[in-house]
Nucleic acid binder design. Structure first.
Lengths: 109, 109
DNA sequence: TGACTATATAAGTATGTAGTTATACATTGA
DNA sequence: TCAATGTATAACTACATACTTATATAGTCA
């Protein structure tokens, strides 16, 4: 595969990280603050195994980082562009309301 | 499904459009100017059926528009945020070089 | 109308991946 | 060390979709 092909593959792979509603939920949850896995699980309401799987995908891709504290593992978003991209897309897809619903845009009240 | 779920589904779906290397190639090809299908096919070097399928996906999603002129159908990008998003991601993923390689950032020489 | 070019679509295969269940591993505290 | 809690992983199923081949549709020009 040539250089250009590799580039398109990489960019497509990055978008594929954001192309899953569960991962968007997780990232929205971690957007404002660092959180341990069990809090994300409670917040989203899916199985622990599933959330853990997605967190690992995001970690390996460098979108989030993690640290252990006692028996808990805390995750946080480190990709500086993630929030910007999601904000742009959420506005593109529908409206400012979506950005608010996803926790990406502060609501005004 | 509740309102919030629908929102995450929609945003994920938008990202999924960009999560395929072939569609990124097509969009990169159409980025600077309107082009008929056969030109896109020649430019990318995949089968006509495949390109046509992807163009339809992009059309139904509102990322591109099309018009018939004689026997040819011309496609063009109409989503105003697409180029911005791709530019941001391409820089995130690696470097400014990627943005140039994808035709999203003008190279300087 | 018939031949030709341009584009779209249908049917099929193959592959990737989200989610589940069950289980393993790690840490803490009694 | 044992029980309890928190997290990760393995094996599996189900489903979506990218790509191919073959064919259909649409337009042009003789």
């Amino acid at each position: 595969m040539d250089e250009t092909s590799r580039i398109f593959e990489q960019v497509a792979h990055y978008f594929s990280l954001l192309a899953d509603p569960t991962r968007l939920r997780i990232l929205s949850c971690l957007c404002s603050e660092e959180r341990p896995v069990h809090e994300v699980v409670e917040s989203i309401g899916l199985t622990q195994a599933n959330i853990s799987r997605h967190l690992n995908i995001l970690y390996r891709a460098g979108v989030v980082d993690r640290r252990r504290e006692g028996s808990a593992v805390y995750y946080r978003v480190i990709d500086p562009n993630f929030v910007d991209i999601c904000r742009t897309v959420s506005i593109t897809v529908a409206s400012r309301d979506i950005g608010e619903a996803m926790g990406l845009i502060p609501s005004k009240h």
